[in-house]
């Protein structure tokens, strides 16, 4: 018997990439996101200014405050004479990391609860009431209380930076999974009545593998949309927390913290909130467009048309 081979003329991911490239908006967004990533990851290696450096000499420090753009400080300096470009770069690292990780936490919780509620009728009412409960909670006060109560305790164990990061990511994750759960549940309810799920049952596929093989692959599109929106929402929520002064420590720049610091002098130095504002908006826009392109590319029915 000759060796049989399943001819794979092009791998599935090659098809996905080919379709993704057709989406002009998504490609532009991908380039934009890569530029942003390079800016925050590689930028600090090139622009070697300490974002927290404050001139110790008070007289010099006063001269360095609130400068406009110059060659020494391309984005100017803030009210303590710190370099804005360096602060933007370091702030972006935190903001992007918080956005990505918090989105993953929220998505994991949301998808798990949505799939369980949609697939197992017995769990449905309990899990959906839990979702309603979370939706009914006023989230911002809840977040503030969580930060207020646990920040010091966690910082004591894990250090101020890592501790705050984990706390913020968890707090955002557990307060923003509800939309994803609802969307996924609805989708699963429709999917599990489809005949291919019935066919899998008639084959004798156990429920866990039906979920993994048939349900999860088909809820991919709504999950991806929720994910891209989730990144945006997480970055903004982190900004809000930092903006309200309950996020990362004050000497620790994030885009939200930069906004918060700039708001005092919005009339005299508007550029100081314009830079982080633009950065946040561009990230959110880029991620949304990428999600859009990815959703189209992952659907075999749209692919190849």
């Amino acid at each position: 018997m000759t060796e049989l081979k399943l001819a794979r003329p092009r791998s599935q991911w090659a098809d996905v990439w080919a379709q993704f490239r057709h989406h002009k908006g998504a490609m532009a967004a991908l380039v934009l996101l890569i530029v942003l990533m390079v800016f925050v990851l590689i930028g600090p290696l090139v622009w070697r200014t300490d974002p927290n450096f404050i001139e110790p000499n008070t007289a010099k420090m006063f001269k360095l405050r609130n400068l406009g753009p110059s060659w020494a400080h391309p984005l100017g300096t803030d009210q303590l004479g710190r370099d804005m470009l360096a602060r933007m770069m370091f702030g972006g690292r935190i903001s992007l990391a918080v956005g990505a990780v918090a989105m993953m936490v929220a998505l994991f919780i949301g998808t798990t609860i949505g799939v369980l509620a949609g697939y197992f009728r017995r769990l449905d009412s309990w899990l959906m009431r839990l979702t309603d409960l979370f939706l009914a909670l006023p989230l911002l006060p809840l977040l503030l209380v969580m930060m207020f109560l646990f920040r010091d305790a966690i910082s004591g164990v894990l250090g101020p930076r890592l501790g705050t990061f984990i706390l913020i990511v968890t707090a955002i994750g557990v307060t923003s999974w509800m939309q994803a759960a609802r969307v996924v549940r609805g989708e699963v309810l429709a999917l599990k009545e489809r005949e291919f799920v019935l066919a899998a049952k008639s084959i004798g596929t156990p429920a866990r593998r039906i979920i993994l093989r048939h349900i999860l692959t088909n809820v991919l599109s709504p999950v991806l949309v929720a994910a891209t929106l989730g990144i945006a929402a997480a970055i903004i929520t982190e900004s809000v927390l930092s903006f309200l002064g309950l996020g990362f420590p004050p000497d620790f720049p994030t885009w939200g913290r930069l906004l918060f610091d700039g708001i005092d002098s919005i009339r005299t130095y508007p550029e100081r909130i314009v830079w982080p504002g633009i950065a946040i908006s561009l990230t959110v826009l880029a991620v949304n467009y990428i999600g859009d392109g990815l959703r189209d590319a992952l659907d075999p029915r749209i692919r190849g048309r």
């Binding site: 489809r194 005949e195 291919f196 019935l198 008639s202 088909n218 991919l220 659907d299 075999p300 029915r301």
Partner: peptide, 21 residues
């Protein structure tokens, strides 16, 4: 589950009975 292989089904709507992905 062990019995399933002896009995199988062909479904009405060939569009809906195959997983599109």
């Amino acid at each position: 589950r062990q019995k399933r292989p002896t009995m199988q089904m062909v479904f009405q709507d060939p569009q809906a009975s195959l997983n599109p992905r």
